[in-house]
Simulated scan of single mutants.
Amino acid sequence: MNASTIAARLALSPGSITRVQGIEVGHHTDTRRPTGCSVVIARAGAVGGVDVRGAAPGTRETDLLHPTNLVERVHAVLLAGGSAWGLDAASGAVRWLEEQGVGLDVRYARLPLVPAAVLFDLGVGDARIRPDAASGYAACAAASSEPPAEGNVGAGAGACVGKVFGMGHAMKGGIGTASVTVEGVTVGALIACNALGDVVDPDTGAVIAGARTEGGRQLRDTRRALLRGELPKPVLAGTNTTIGVIATDAQITKAQAHRLAVVSHDGLARAINPVHTMSDGDTLFTLGTGASGRALGMMALATMAAEVTAVATLRAVLCARGITTADGLWLPAAGDL
C-alpha cells in the first residue's frame, strides 16, 4: 500500500474515541527509546468491562470488572508498553486522578480505580527503559477531549507487528482510534497494536502490515505462508499483544459492558491474522459513560464496537512511521514497502 493509498484510506476513516461524551485521552512517549503509555479517562466514572483473549496477558484490576463483582464504575484505563514493568504506570494515573478529586468515595479518601494492560515492546531499543509511575502521571496530565495522536505515540510507540517469522521480518505497529455514531450514541475505540500476526484491511482482507519476505521489501502474508507449511520462528510467550479500550456514551449495565468487550474482539479478528495466539495477551476494556442520556439496543452497540475496533486497529499501522533502532533493527511502516 503506497503513501497516497494510505492517505486516501485514512481520510475515509471515522473520528476518534474522544467523540464519546465524558472521555479524555492522553499519551506519554519516552523519547529515550520507543515506548510509552496511553490513558483513557472518565472523570465522572464509567461502567467498566473487560475480556482477555490472548494466552499471555499482563493486566491490573481486571477482576473488579467482572459483572458479578461489587464495583460498578471505574475512572480510567491505562495502556502501556514495557511488559509487566509497564503496569507501574497505572500507579501514576491513580495519583494524578486523586489529586484531581476523582475516584470512588471510600469515606476516608477518594480512590481512583484504574484497570490496566501492557504490551511487550522490550525488543525495540533499550529494554531497561520502560513506562513507570511518572509516565502514567504525565499521560493523565496531557489528557484532553481533543482527537488523540496516532501511530508511534504512547502505548504504540514501541509496538510492532508480523513477528511470526522473527523480528527481522516484522514491521512497525502503533496506536489508532476510530468512532461511529448512531441515533445520538457514539462508540469509539483506542487500540495499541503489537500483534504477532499481520494486520489486514477489514473491508478487503488485503494484508496491510506484517511479516515480510526474505528480501524484506514485500509482505509475506502470514496466514497463507503458514498454510503452505512455512515454519514459524520460536516466539517467547507474551512478547506481543494488542490492547485497547472501547468506550460508549450509551447507558449500559455492567453485564452489557462485559458483553461489548467480548464482541469487540470480533473486530480484532477482522483486522489481525492470526490473532489471540499463545504468544499474545490480547485484552480489550469497555467503558460506558452514559453521558448521552440514551440507550441503544445491544445488537447495534455490538456491531458498532466490533467496527470501531477493527478500524482503529487498521489505523494503528496506517498511522505508524518506520524506525531503525540503535542496534540496527529496521521496522518499516505500511507506507515504506
Rank of each mutant, 00 (worst) to 15 (best):
L287V: 06
P57G: 08
A141T: 03
S135Y: 01
A141I: 03
A139N: 02
L97N: 05
T248V: 09
A225D: 05
A250M: 04
G238I: 09
V185D: 09
T186E: 09
L337D: 00
T309R: 13
A189T: 02
W330N: 14
W330G: 06
A333F: 07
L287P: 09
G58H: 08
E183W: 09
A138L: 13
T309H: 11
L122I: 08
L122P: 01
G184S: 13
V187D: 01
R294I: 05
I323Y: 06
A142Q: 05
H265R: 14
S38M: 00
G36A: 05
S16C: 11
A170G: 07
G48R: 07
M1G: 14
L318G: 08
A247C: 03
R9H: 06
P202A: 10
A44W: 00
R95F: 08
F120P: 05
G158S: 13
A7E: 14
T35A: 07
V235P: 10
F165R: 05
A84D: 08
E98S: 12
G158A: 11
G22A: 04
I23F: 04
A237V: 11
Q21M: 06
W85R: 14
A269L: 10
T222G: 05
G168P: 07
L231K: 15
G205F: 08
I23D: 01
L219I: 08
R9W: 06
G26Q: 03
R212Q: 05
L231M: 15
A90S: 15
T313C: 15
G22P: 00
V317N: 02
G166Y: 03
V25M: 02
Q21D: 02
A80V: 00
G216I: 07
G322Y: 11
A93S: 12
A312W: 09
A316C: 12
T289R: 06
A155N: 05
T204I: 10
I23H: 01
R220G: 02
P148M: 01
P232M: 11
T181I: 15
A142K: 06
F120R: 02
T283S: 14
I175W: 00
L104M: 11
G92E: 04
T181M: 13
A237I: 09
G136K: 03
L331R: 07
H27Q: 01
E99F: 07
P67A: 10
A326F: 00
M1I: 12
V74A: 09
S292K: 13
R315A: 03
H258V: 07
T239E: 13
A117L: 05
G45Q: 04
G48D: 07
D203W: 15
D327G: 07
S13N: 08
G166Q: 04
M171C: 14
V185A: 10
A80W: 01
R223T: 15
S145M: 13
A300E: 13
D201F: 08
H27S: 02
F165E: 01
R43V: 03
A46P: 04
V199G: 00
V118K: 02
T283G: 14
A261L: 11
A138S: 14
A310H: 13
S38H: 00
I6K: 12
